[in-house]
């Protein structure tokens, strides 16, 4: 009886969020999977399977004889036929990867500093890290357009410096450089916070012990702090890499014509080309490749543990 009521209360508590995920995540994903096998409609959307005439009578258009006029594998074929899509995937992975790496390098010392500060400074620093969230994402990206624009003090000063050493002036905006700056800027807090949460829990006695046993500063970091912070690094990597991979607003605003990412292509398919099925294919491939990467990372982590 008690068992039953505890099971019931568990379902009551986890029910609403589960239902939410089912309706707004699982169902749309499934719809997208089905859409990937359909044919685009004449004016966007999907070629309808049903038709309702003026009298309100609904007719099923698809049948056993003509199903391949409605269902096709060609969308996937198109993805693999042209290497341009694979190249775009690789480029997006490169952008997301380099962004993640830069975020780790920048966030680690900052997270360490926050974790080692006293309570008051710590709260202030955490507040500063999350402060950018208080203003709109697009406004912050537009701010970067101004900072990197050719008229900005930053660009002018940089080009002056370059002129002194005899290098041609550069245009910062609408370049790969600008996209990576934007990606790093937007995602940095998502690396700092999990790292800080991890580093804050570290037992300082371990560093004393390592030093006592003969480890210098570098060895203390590399043998003790770094391996113990890996869960934080992985959490931050997931929070930065995955959103960065699908980002389209930043390449749209800061990137040039040659720095678009998969996100831009997907957006194009749905909004501009009105090719929902192919947009769905791209989305599915993106999801699959992220899952594949997570699986590889998980497998690598496990086998490393077993070897130890």
């Amino acid at each position: 009886m008690r068992n039953l009521s505890s099971r019931l209360s568990r379902w009551l508590i986890s029910g609403p969020p589960l239902l939410y995920l089912l309706i707004f995540f699982a169902a749309p994903t499934l719809i997208m999977v089905f859409a990937a096998f359909r044919i685009p409609g004449d004016y966007g959307g999907l070629l309808p399977l049903l038709q309702t005439d003026d009298a309100g009578k609904t007719e099923v258009l698809i049948n056993a004889g003509n199903w391949h006029d409605f269902i096709t594998f060609e969308n996937f074929g198109r993805f693999f036929e042209d290497s341009i899509y694979a190249e775009l995937f690789l480029k997006s992975f490169w952008y997301a990867g380099i962004t993640t790496l830069i975020c780790i390098v920048l966030a680690y010392p900052l997270a360490w500093l926050i974790a080692r500060s006293n309570k008051k400074t710590r709260d202030l620093l955490v507040l500063l890290v999350i402060l950018p969230f208080w203003s709109n994402f697009l406004i912050r990206v537009y701010a970067w357009m101004i900072i990197l624009g050719p008229q900005s003090y930053f660009s002018v000063a940089l080009n002056h410096l370059l002129a002194l050493v005899g290098i041609e002036p550069v245009s910062l905006l609408f370049s790969q450089f600008a996209v990576i700056i934007g990606l790093v800027y937007v995602h940095l807090p998502f690396m700092v916070l999990p790292l800080y949460a991890n580093l804050e829990k570290h037992d300082m006695a371990l560093l004393d012990a390592a030093q006592d046993l003969g480890a210098n500063a570098w060895q203390r970091f590399w043998r003790i702090t770094w391996p113990l912070s890996l869960p934080g690094v992985w959490a931050g990597t997931a929070l930065v890499f995955i959103p960065a991979l699908g980002m389209f607003a930043i390449p749209d605003l800061l990137g040039g014509t040659n720095s678009i990412m998969i996100g831009n292509l997907i957006k194009q398919q749905f909004l501009d080309s009105r090719d929902w099925p192919f947009g769905s294919v791209l989305s599915i491939m993106l999801t699959l490749s992220v899952l594949l990467m997570a699986a590889i990372a998980g497998w690598a982590g496990r086998s490393k543990k077993e070897r130890a």
């Binding site: 037992d203 006695a205 371990l206 004393d208 012990a209 390592a210 030093q211 006592d212 046993l213 003969g214 480890a215 210098n216 043998r223 003790i224 391996p227 113990l228 130890a308």
Partner: peptide, 25 residues
């Protein structure tokens, strides 16, 4: 002489064993 260079080792009150390493490590 800094701690890491002294021929002196300490058994800490909290033991301070490295949690990610096995006993042998």
């Amino acid at each position: 002489v800094p701690p890491e260079k002294r021929p002196v080792h300490t058994v800490f009150q909290s033991y301070a064993l490295f949690p990610h390493m096995t006993v042998a490590q």
